[in-house]
Design a protein around this nucleic acid. Structure first.
Lengths: 206, 206, 206, 206
DNA sequence: AATGAATGAGAGTTCATTCAT
DNA sequence: GATGAATGAACTCTCATTCAT
């Protein structure tokens, strides 16, 4: 866990450190990221880094959590879509996703970090970070799925975890595809609507 | 490229080495795998490893290719489904996938290797292996998608690369989910059919 | 570049490390020198070596520069001989060289290092060190040659680079010969004077 | 020592092997040359190499000796200049050197090998080769110097070994300079004559 | 006569982490 | 509260040599 000490630093200093870590993790992934490079870029001592964080994984965990929170915050509140007709549900989700993507497209490094984190796999040492981060993201998604199932917008014949994995995976593909080749701003709406529709078809009931 | 010398070894010895590599790569992914651990497990000297293979990447490439070939070989031929009605197309695919999964479930390590390989990302140094392997896998998938589009079983309003990414991603989720919690053999059929249906819905035309 | 950290070490410790490196480089040349042997002799860890220096070449560069500076410093200033008659020019050079050799003879290892460095050739990777060191040595020699040409003490019918190479080569032979079989101190003066005269004959005008 | 077995090979095969070794040694010098690369280039097995030669150094020794002999042979006989006037002595030497350089310029690899060998320095392990090769070359040079001294063309106030070193060093500089920037064939004569004259001045008596 | 499989020591380099100050 | 010196294990890769066949 991040030591509380870290948050006593001047905010600008915190930012500087987290940005350095963000760049490194986004560029190389967790395993191949180098703490040495991070502290060089951040301009802090190695001792300080270990004074603020428990270690490499702890830093990674914190960067992810912090950046995702900020991202989600910047996109405005992410309310679980209110109950209503399935059409209303999906259109509400689409708007949400559009907002999210617009923010994501402005921050390629966070996007890269997110991608690396979502793809998971690899080092078991990060599983802690994974689990924690998932615990921060999933409740919303789970809530949304639950609402969707209640109002008949989401199929109920699949285990929840599989449903979740399918949605996240499709979302990830769409994220990556959009980030790699961002459509002209004018096309973004149309494209995202089509892609959300793909998810809808996959998880809508018969 | 694997040196021909390797194939002159007793088959059991080849197997022993490849199994050691398979375990390591499956457990840690390419970047975090350790050649030292592999040679320890294989019981050969470092010099011998480099006598057989050009290096880490070469070994990785070979393990993947060898294991996938064996896997696909064991599952029988993978013909592109013949043209016909969309229903025939999808049911043909389902049978195919069932066969594949049955084999995959018998070999969790190959499955893990496959997973790590599919998720790609990470080290650019493995791109060679990636590209070669993709060149071995993609033509079939592309061919299948093309046939599906011809006979009206697959939508044509999305770019081919996105369509491909969606299908592969869904397939991967399903793979992982099935491998993690293999259903009772009796349920496998039903489950796979449902999951293939998810893919069908996502990529079928309106 | 040597990391500043190195210079924060106790001087005795710095000396110990540099001496270990000096011995190794003097005995084996750059390419065949072993960092492992150096750290063993220096009694420091491999990590520390890389904490102080950027790598093998960096260490080599530093040892050379440091030792040469010390050597040249110990021999006093090396002024370009002032304009005057050719006889004055050559006699001034002779005195200079005598001083230099007396210092050099007290430090066979630096002499060996210098020899290996002067002969250059070999690894292209050391070119950086070479160039830097040459940039430190050559200006003086070039300036001296130029003065000699101005006052008619040095021939002008050969390209400068060839002239330079001839002088350096003769000087090197003389260095090596003197170092290998140092004449009785009493004879040193006479011998050096004769040898400088050899150079003079080679490069004096008709 | 080269095993006699080597000379029982077909001459073409011997040539092939020696050429491969020549290229490698010329390109990397002794220490950094790789036996593995040599046998790859030569297309022979590692076992064979060790069947023909005692090891790396033995091969090096043999290549040098063989190539130099051939070079000297190709340039025609190298008679020790007959006694006569000093002018005749030096002009005879000049003609000899001209012939030698013309051959040398046609074979850059032998030239590179020669350069690396002459500069000596470095690995003590090659000293054997050095000594042997010197023993093949020196007698002629010594004889020539002796004749020169007899007829008053060469100074007698310097130890023979120093005289030798001076002459060889100057010759080497000239070799390297000529090889690096070969003058137009028309200029070669004039340039060589000037350079030989430099040597003459250095070692002629007062 | 000839092969090539096998080796182990060694190369230079990077790393996350510790801890005395 | 903060530092940075110091470490040793681990990394991938290359090498000349041996020897059973």
């Amino acid at each position: 866990m991040v030591r509380p000490r870290f948050h006593k630093l001047a905010v600008a200093r915190q930012e500087h450190i987290l940005n350095a870590a963000l760049s490194e993790f986004a560029a190389h992934g967790f395993a191949d990221a180098s703490l040495n490079r991070i502290i060089d870029a951040a301009g802090i001592s190695k001792g300080s880094m270990y004074y603020y964080f428990d270690g490499k994984e702890d830093l990674y965990t914190h960067v992810i959590r912090d950046r995702l929170e900020r991202l989600l915050g910047g996109a405005g509140p992410f309310p679980v879509p209110p109950a209503g007709t399935p059409d209303e549900f999906w259109s509400s989700l689409t708007e949400l996703y559009l907002r999210l993507m617009k923010v994501l497209l402005t921050s390629p490094e966070v996007a890269a970090l997110l991608r690396g984190w979502l793809s998971g796999g690899g080092a078991p040492s990060v599983s802690t970070a994974q689990q924690e981060a998932e615990q921060a993201t999933l409740p919303w998604l789970l809530g949304t799925l639950a609402v969707g199932q209640e109002i008949g917008a989401v199929r109920t014949d699949l285990p929840t975890d599989l449903l979740l994995a399918l949605v996240m995976s499709l979302g990830q593909v769409i994220d990556i595809w959009l980030i790699r080749q961002p459509p002209a701003s004018a096309d973004l709406d149309r494209t995202v609507r089509t892609l959300i529709d793909v998810i809808r078809r996959a998880v809508a009931p018969d």
